[in-house]
Design a protein around this nucleic acid. Structure first.
Length: 802
RNA sequence: GCCGGUGUGAUGGAAUGGUAGACGUGAAGCACUCAAAAUGCUUUGCCCAUCGGGCGUGCCGGUUCGAGUCCGGCCACCGGCACCA
């Protein structure tokens, strides 16, 4: 009989659909294990061959855990709110909800085609009102706790489309759609105070089993720095507060720079003799996009404030104040003290504007370049700090500033609060109402969800408001507080909202009274193993950790962290080594591969093609190697075999024990490629010496997480009891993985000269005797004095001769 | 510029400081076949060669009995961040 993968895969998928062997049970005797993949965004293109890599990996893990006796939760859902769907809907004039329905159906069918052991009964959809009701509820809780606030922040504004653009929509400083200029503009937006959690988001990484590169990326992104805030008095009378990480260099501060957006500029306007020039500079800076501001960074620009200067608090000297766009309004206090001797940017600026450069840390040549080394320098020209190391000077000056009430130590983060408003239709409505009298009033919990109304036109508007702004019937609503006429918020949430808590909903996806029951959350969370893309580490992963911590603080979840373990997969590249993308036309569709080779082959291949954590190019011609492997297994296992079901043959006993150990260990270490190589070797052995029933049973049991359909089919054909996917993961006997006799490498002076065979665990003398008994090796040692012998047990002998 | 990562046969990739190249692809040969495909078996890092020997993991050095692996200094490529004071 031929290996008819199409029929076999359909058969088992139907059985799984009907008998639901992968449905998770809420409770029971077995220990729980929660395996999570990043749920897909159901785009119109369907699954591409990149999706199966992480999905198959986690499916293998989930299937192994079930065989190990765990109660496994391995859920799936759809992150369906978002811009691509909305744009597709606009282009094709189909309602986004309709588009979502079609796309999710297609994705689900594709996932089923690949035989994933998801618990489909728990499938969720972030655009389902029953779901986003709770996304809105969390937002309300955040508002209640002072974490959600409305603020005016700079956004990308297209001068022609008259609307706000996402950063991704700004390409080389111009609007992606119309090619016109994009400027920064202040706009009132809902914000989430993620910065209040910055310290905890860093600290709590320590206790988590995340791969190091993930932790590092999050830490760098949050960007903690320690320094001090220092007050400078000005001739205008106001205090100008700066943030610095080098308070030790205060004596070397020869000028100050404030950002063009700094609030004091407005106040100081009457005092400024060159107000026009400053205005022009401010306008120019505003006109520049972030992109230009950083690209043109090499050449420093700025304008000196004519009419206001500052006093250095330690020297008492009067120093000039500049505005320059190299100082960011959004970091620190939006103002800096400039120490050109010890900061590269300040040095450049000082050179350009011929400002004095004072050396306050000895060790370099400040006339040639800024000396920024903190470890070796000694303080000079710094009054009471002279002679101290940089570290000691930092401590002393900070104490001094605190003492004199001129400043204090301060920690800053690069992380900014999260801009949470989108002027788009296809997202969760932000459940807030604006009342002239009461201000922003939250929608009462009992009125949730605030349903996304049906609109005729969901295109963006000329005014930059959400398409919802035209829905007067929907907008106008009485104030929940005083009953006066009021208006709903028309902005929606960003696509990261629904995915920030979805793993909680899986615990209890149909709950109508809470985002999930306390019992279900206590039982299932935290997620035991979460795998996803590296590109989500600084967005989704961070956002969801933030939300989870908030939910922990208000007593909704029992742990401070949502995910115990996080790993990340590499991308599958096209055959040319480039990223797969529709525009390059190099995308591989999994359906084509499944049609030609079968789902089991595709699953094997995506796991076999390289190191799971690294990018790897696709190769259609290599896929057939995996198909051949399955064909060879089929050839061995479809016919009737001798032997007992639960006994290994003497010929294969060692190889089997080793394979059980290796495959299990490799799955845990994400080394799926070598796990499959081990199985391939085993099959090669079986072609040399025919296997017994017991041998084949183990092979199928180990294979079943990787290629579940064929394993199950052959299991049945052999008449083994039960199913391959529920059969206990086999145990190995460490003693039986060891050979009786080994080949020992023989080196002379560190160079490999030959090998000898000796019994395992032979004493050193026996090994040496074997070496001398070898004619060739003995000849090489003739007439030479043995100076030293190194023996590595069961591995190698190294003879050092004179 | 800063922070990561990577560099191994024709090729995708294996190798707790201990026999480099497992496993797969490709290629060559043999068997089966009228023939081809499929399948099975064999060979396949490079150089000289008869046994055998020499050289080999981006480059240069170091540590070590022994280095793809550890250390120092380069080079190249990929990714992220980028005037964060």
């Amino acid at each position: 009989m031929k290996y008819d993968f199409t029929a076999i895969e359909k058969k088992w998928q139907k059985i799984w659909e009907e008998t639901k062997p992968f449905a998770a049970k809420d409770g029971g005797d077995k220990p729980k294990y929660y395996v999570l993949i990043e749920f897909p965004y159901p785009s119109g293109d369907g699954l591409h061959v990149g999706h199966p890599r992480p999905y198959t990996a986690m499916d293998i893990l989930a299937r192994r855990r079930r065989k190990q006796g765990y109660n496994v939760l391995f859920p799936i859902g759809f992150d369906s709110f978002g811009l691509p769907t909305e744009n597709y809907a606009i282009k094709n004039k189909i309602h986004p909800a309709e588009v979502t329905k079609r796309n999710t159906a297609r994705f689900a069918a594709q996932c089923k085609m690949l035989g994933y052991s998801f618990d489909w009964d728990r499938a969720i959809d972030t655009s389902d009102p029953e779901y986003y009701k709770w996304t809105q509820w969390i937002f309300l809780k955040m508002f209640e706790n002072g974490l959600a606030y409305k603020a005016s922040v700079p956004v990308n504004w297209c001068t022609s489309c008259k609307c706000v653009l996402a950063n991704e929509e700004v390409v080389n400083g111009v609007c992606e759609r119309c090619g016109s200029e994009v400027v920064r503009r202040e706009k009132s937006q809902w914000m989430l105070a993620i910065t209040k959690y910055a310290q905890r988001l860093i600290d709590d990484l320590d206790g988590l089993d995340f791969t190091e590169r993930i932790k590092l990326l999050e830490k760098n992104w949050i960007g903690r720095s320690t320094g001090a805030e220092v007050d400078f008095t000005t001739t205008a009378g106001d205090t100008l507060r700066v943030y610095t990480t080098r308070p030790d260099t205060l004596f070397g501060a020869t000028y100050m720079v404030i950002s063009p957006e700094h609030a004091l500029l407005k106040k100081w306007e009457p005092l400024l003799k060159n107000a026009d020039e400053i205005h022009a500079y401010q306008l120019e800076a505003a006109r520049k996009s972030d992109f230009e501001r950083t690209e043109l960074a090499k050449d420093k620009t700025g304008v000196r404030l004519d009419g206001v200067s500052a006093i250095n608090p330690v020297t008492g000297g009067e120093i000039p104040v500049f505005i320059s766009d190299y100082v960011l309004a959004t970091y620190g206090t939006g103002a800096i003290m400039a120490v050109p001797g010890h900061d590269e940017r300040d040095w450049e600026f000082a050179k350009k504007f011929s400002l004095p450069i004072i050396e306050v840390v000895a060790g370099g040549d400040v006339e040639k370049e800024a000396f920024t080394d903190c470890d070796t320098g000694v303080m000079v020209n710094s009054g009471f700090l002279n002679g101290l190391s940089v570290a000691d000077a930092k401590t002393k000056i900070t104490e001094w500033l605190t003492d004199k009430n001129l400043g204090e130590s301060k920690v800053n983060f690069k992380l900014r609060d999260w801009v949470f408003s989108r002027q788009r239709y296809w997202g969760e409505p932000i459940p807030m109402i604006y009342c002239e009298k009461c201000g922003w009033v939250p929608v009462p919990e009992s009125d949730l969800p605030v349903l996304l109304p049906d609109v005729q036109n969901y295109e963006t508007t000329d005014t930059g408001d959400s398409p919802l702004a035209a829905m007067t019937d929907w907008i106008n609503t009485p104030c929940p507080h005083c009953g006066a006429p009021a208006k709903r918020e028309t902005d929606t949430m960003p696509n990261w909202a629904g995915s920030s808590w979805y793993y909680l909903r899986y615990a209890d996806p149909k709950n109508k009274d809470a985002l999930a029951s306390k019992k279900a959350i206590d039982y299932w969370t935290p997620v035991d193993w979460y795998n996803g893309g590296m590109e989500h580490v600084t967005l989704h992963l961070l956002y969801s950790r933030f939300w989870h911590k908030f939910l922990y603080d208000i007593g909704v979840v029992p742990t401070p962290e949502p995910y115990k373990k996080r790993t990340a997969h590499g991308m599958i590249l096209a055959e040319d080594g480039q990223k797969m993308s529709k525009s390059r036309g190099n995308v591989i569709n999994p359906n084509d591969i499944v049609d030609e080779f079968g789902a089991d082959t595709l699953r094997l291949y995506v796991m076999f093609l390289g190191d799971f954590e690294k990018d790897a190019p696709w190769s259609t011609s290599s896929v057939k190697g995996c198909k051949r492997f399955l064909d060879r297994i089929w050839g061995l296992a479809e016919k009737s075999l001798n032997g007992k079901d639960n006994q290994f043959s003497a010929a294969h006993e060692k190889a089997l024990h080793r394979a059980i150990k290796k495959v299990g260990g490799d799955i845990e270490a994400l080394k799926f490629n070598t796990a499959i190589a081990t199985l391939m070797s085993l099959v090669n052995d079986f072609y040399e010496t025919p296997p017994t029933r017991g041998d084949i049973k183990i092979l199928l049991s180990l294979l079943s997480p990787f290629a579940p359909h064929i394993a199950e089919e052959l299991w049945g054909l052999q008449g083994f009891s039960g199913h391959a996917d529920s059969d206990k993961w086999p145990d190995y006997d460490a003693a039986k993985t060891i050979d009786d006799e080994l080949e020992i490498a023989v080196q002379i002076g560190g160079k490999l000269k030959g090998t000898v065979r000796v019994p395992t665990d032979s004493p050193d003398e026996a090994v040496l005797a074997a070496v001398l008994a070898d004619e060739k090796l003995a000849r090489l040692t003739e007439n030479r004095e043995l100076v030293r012998t190194i023996v590595v047990k069961n591995k190698l002998v190294n003879l050092i001769l004179k």
